[in-house]
């Protein structure tokens, strides 16, 4: 047992905390925060478990994947925020409208 597992477990905790907030909160900004926390959880699992190769050598492939993931996350966050602002400008609210059609 190394602290690799400890961080990986924290990562799965973050994933679930984020999921909970994503489902429970109505405000879009909170949902965006929740998605980001979930992403951090996934990244933490990815990098923490790469630590199992020992103290001296670390597997660089998950590191590169997480850097890719961080950049994708900031792109998605920017698009989500712009969409939220546009929605708020049109509807006066930053909450998801009720589904139409049913």
């Amino acid at each position: 047992m190394t602290n690799a597992f400890l961080y990986a477990l924290a990562g799965s905790g973050l994933f679930v905390l984020g999921l909970h907030a994503l489902v429970m909160h109505a405000h879009v900004l909170r949902k965006i925060l929740a998605i980001n926390v979930m992403g951090s959880g996934v990244f933490l699992i990815l990098v923490a478990l790469a630590r199992r190769s020992g103290e001296t050598t670390t597997d660089p492939v998950p590191h590169a994947m997480v850097i890719t993931g961080i950049v994708v996350a900031v792109s998605a966050t920017a698009l989500a925020l712009a969409l939220m602002l546009k929605l708020a400008e049109k509807s006066g609210q930053a909450v998801l409208p009720d589904k139409h059609g049913d």
Binding site: F15, L19, I35, G39, A76, L79, A80, K90, P97
Partner: peptide, 24 residues
């Protein structure tokens, strides 16, 4: 339009959640 923005927002959140579950 407002319905398109709402639909897109919901779609974005769903698709990001789906990708994260896949990535995990």
């Amino acid at each position: 339009r407002i319905d398109a923005l709402g639909g897109a927002m919901r779609y974005l959140l769903a698709t990001l959640l789906g990708s994260l579950a896949y990535l995990l």
